[in-house]
Computed example of a mutant assay.
Amino acid sequence: MFKAVLNNPSAEPKDIRWFYDQYAPMLLGYINGIVQDHQQSEDHLVAILTSFVKDVVLQEKSKLNIWLELRQYAQSKLTLFTAKDHQLKPNPSVNKGKLDLLDDSQKRIFCAVYYHGKSIPYLAATMGCDESEIRNQLKLSIDKMRRASGN
């Protein structure tokens, strides 16, 4: 068990120790599926559980609702964590012929969507801009590549 959890005495059912006992295995499996590194997954688990207990004021809910709320909270936190860990760069195995027509921002967005499978809301969160701007840049990059190929 983590030191952060051991240092907190168990007083009531909604403290960090209770959350760790109830949800850590499921949450660690969820995080490990996203992060793919066990040590980083454990670090994220501690950070997420600690901040969830501090940030989220829980009302009396069923355990299913708590798990769903915790998973959504973890998903929003992991979006920020993984954005720092994985910079979205063009895939080196891709034919660069048409990508050279795009500016850096368009190239980053295009490659993130089409080669890395990232969503527009994810890109908006990681790049710190509006979803409509991401969509516009993606459309412009597709148009440039189509015009260059004669379509």
Rank of each mutant, 00 (worst) to 15 (best):
M1E: 10
M1K: 10
A4C: 12
L6V: 06
L6R: 13
N7K: 09
S10I: 03
S10L: 08
A11P: 00
A11G: 10
A11H: 11
E12Y: 13
E12L: 08
P13E: 03
P13C: 00
P13A: 00
K14L: 05
K14T: 06
D15K: 01
I16M: 10
I16S: 02
W18Q: 06
W18P: 00
D21I: 07
Q22S: 06
Q22P: 00
G29Y: 07
Y30M: 02
Y30T: 00
I31T: 01
N32K: 11
N32R: 11
N32S: 11
I34A: 12
V35C: 04
Q36E: 15
D37K: 12
Q39A: 11
S41K: 04
S41G: 08
S41F: 06
D43K: 07
H44Q: 10
H44L: 09
L49H: 02
L49G: 01
L49A: 00
T50Q: 14
T50S: 15
V53H: 04
K54F: 10
V56Y: 05
K61A: 08
K61T: 08
S62E: 10
S62W: 03
K63L: 08
L64N: 05
N65Q: 10
I66Y: 04
L68G: 05
E69G: 06
L70W: 01
L70C: 00
R71T: 10
Q72V: 07
Q72M: 11
Q75L: 13
Q75A: 15
S76I: 10
S76L: 11
S76D: 15
S76H: 14
K77S: 12
L80P: 04
T82D: 14
T82M: 15
T82N: 15
K84P: 03
D85T: 07
H86N: 11
H86R: 14
H86S: 09
Q87F: 15
L88E: 14
P90L: 03
P90G: 07
P90Q: 08
P92Y: 06
V94D: 12
N95I: 04
N95Q: 08
K96A: 13
G97I: 00
L99G: 07
L101A: 03
L102E: 08
D104R: 08
S105M: 13
S105K: 13
S105G: 07
K107P: 11
R108S: 14
I109S: 02
I109N: 02
C111Q: 06
C111V: 02
Y114S: 11
K118W: 09
K118A: 07
P121F: 05
Y122I: 01
L123C: 01
A124Y: 06
G128C: 01
C129V: 11
I134P: 02
N136F: 15
Q137E: 15
Q137T: 05
L138R: 09
K139D: 13
L140I: 07
I142N: 11
I142E: 14
I142D: 12
I142P: 02
K144S: 10
M145S: 03
R147P: 00
R147K: 15
A148E: 08
S149I: 04
G150L: 00
N151W: 13
